[in-house]
Design a protein around this nucleic acid. Structure first.
Lengths: 191, 191, 191, 191
DNA sequence: GATGAATGAGCCTTCATTCAT
DNA sequence: GATGAATGAAGGCTCATTCAT
């Protein structure tokens, strides 16, 4: 999906895959170097250290996620149901473009290696999503529950689904995504 | 919640907390020893090695979780709605008794350190939960979605909620749990 | 062969076997305790530490070896050939009584754990043997070579032979010992 | 004697000295690193682990010893007496070139760390030496004793002699080596 | 006196990081 | 700029030694 040109991007891409698959602590610099097809020392020309690399990666993809969400942010006029579908489709699109990104973000968002900035960026993203829920709650359209719990339901369901797809346990057809989207909507909408 | 008596249990308890908070690879034996208030060498009187410790822990809590689920398994006569409530309450009780257990299980169930037995025990637990969903799906009461995705929704929501409680961001009152339980039910029930 | 009564002797005996078979560094205190059928802590009631144990052992058996050599020391009147036979038989008897003793002494006499006293005792024993060779050299009966080299020949041959016997590679009959004794004598006698 | 160029050879050389002087178990990786003037981690760029290092070393020197013995293997025509002198001189040359090698081989040939290949290489070397003795025994030139005992006499005497030389207790002149060689010959030849 | 559970120093080994080429 | 050989700090683990029972 991604067009990779510079060594820096090769390294980031290799890091994303490995961190997502193995986690930060089980991923070694030589592993990243091998996958990125660069020397281990080269990584240190682009990143201060391993922590810096994972934080760059985290912030970069949180940023991109925010961008996509902005692009998919529903117009004021549309129905709440339609608005939610837009946001959900944003996540689908994001994951199509960056296969491991969302899973990486989810599995690392409480990691001990994330610095202040990364935590803030992530909070920013959450706030953005929360704002949608909060507005919906005010209008009585969204269920009156903590926004974080609502987000957990949606993200959890989505990522678990995607994991099944990656592992080949499930066929990623249109109907499936629609079903999950509907399920999530029913979970969060007021009844 | 837990009554801790022997050193072995101190070590298991310290391991549970640290593995849940930091993950297996970021948790060191000295960390566990310090938290358990024992010497580092003492850990090796009770466990062959670090891997053995994490597997013991994993199997022990999966076992306990299965036990609780069995105890809360709904009687045949009750309504599906009531049955789900029972299971959900089982999770609430389990988490009240073992604060980090479910989160630990969730974050380690794909870990590279789990041995065959651990994987089998976990699969057993999943099968138990799945059987409930599958039966419901057959009866047209539960939504027609992959069981794993349904489990993800329920577990994801529940664990996220519990995290908010642990971090003090939310008041763990009756109404909250009821709300989340209802949300999960709406997410999985057929409409 | 040995009559073992006290725990102290059990420990010494276990140590002798294990040090001879595995060497000092590859022998652990728990191993010795198990073989001696005592608790690990009990060893420290009789010996200050592991080094002390091995030195006690070394000195004890060097002492016994000296005693046996004294007992077998040839009378002045006998022929040099007969005198050598006496000494050789002393070694045979010593090894029959303490299977691992001589091998233990040989493999540990340059060990880094031996203290000054042990080294002195060993030197004493060597001097005793040397004195025999020196006297013989003066009389022109023994070959004019460094006494240590002569000792090496005799001890080396004898221990190697004993090892073959222990490992069952060779039948320990009268003829064999006589043959080796004769070989050694030819190696050291003047021609 | 040896010209040392690469780090790998520095490590091997340091290992040879220390293993010969202290034995495998009493030699630590930091000791080897210090003596080789490299970082401890560097050793692991050249050898999988400590066991691998000692086996490499063992096989390498057994190999070289076999080579030297081959070079010194007596021509068919020469007298048995002359043949033995050749072989003995081979050992002298080998030890001049690699001071600790033969002693290292002798003290480690029953070590628990040697792998199958090392044992086989050593057996190969023994067979080569044995074949000389066996042939001599068939011809009635060599004494009718187990070949291993004959080897023990010759190797034992030779190594003990060399130790005296190393420790400066004896002057390594021509006459000494000739005397020991003659002694060994008398020990093994039929009378 | 005897025990063995507990300890922590020190070992082997890995891996993030540096630096000469 | 790029590399990978070299390093040493730090982790997992063992085992000599202590000490409460």
């Amino acid at each position: 999906m991604e067009e990779i040109t510079s060594k820096r991007e090769h390294i980031l891409d290799a890091g994303l895959h490995l961190f997502a698959e193995r986690g930060f602590d089980a991923t070694t610099i030589p592993m990243i170097a091998t996958k990125a097809e660069v020397g281990a020392g080269t990584i240190y020309r682009y990143f201060i250290n391993k922590e810096n690399l994972v934080n760059e990666l985290f912030q970069q993809y949180v940023e991109r996620c925010i961008t996509i969400l902005h692009e998919h942010y529903p117009e004021a006029g549309s129905s709440p149901r339609e608005q939610f579908r837009q946001i959900f489709n944003g996540m689908v699109q994001f994951t199509n473009e960056h296969e491991h990104a969302l899973y990486f973000i989810k599995t690392h968002n409480h990691s001990h290696v994330l610095n202040q900035t990364s935590r803030e960026r992530f909070e920013e993203m959450l706030n953005f999503i929360r704002s949608f829920f909060e507005k919906g709650k005010e209008q009585g359209i969204i269920r009156d529950l903590p926004a974080n719990a609502l987000i957990a339901i949606v993200l959890g369901a989505f990522l678990e689904l995607h994991k099944l797809v990656r592992e080949g346990d499930v066929d990623p057809n249109e109907k499936l995504f629609e079903g999950v989207e509907e399920s999530c909507w029913d979970a969060i909408r007021a009844h």
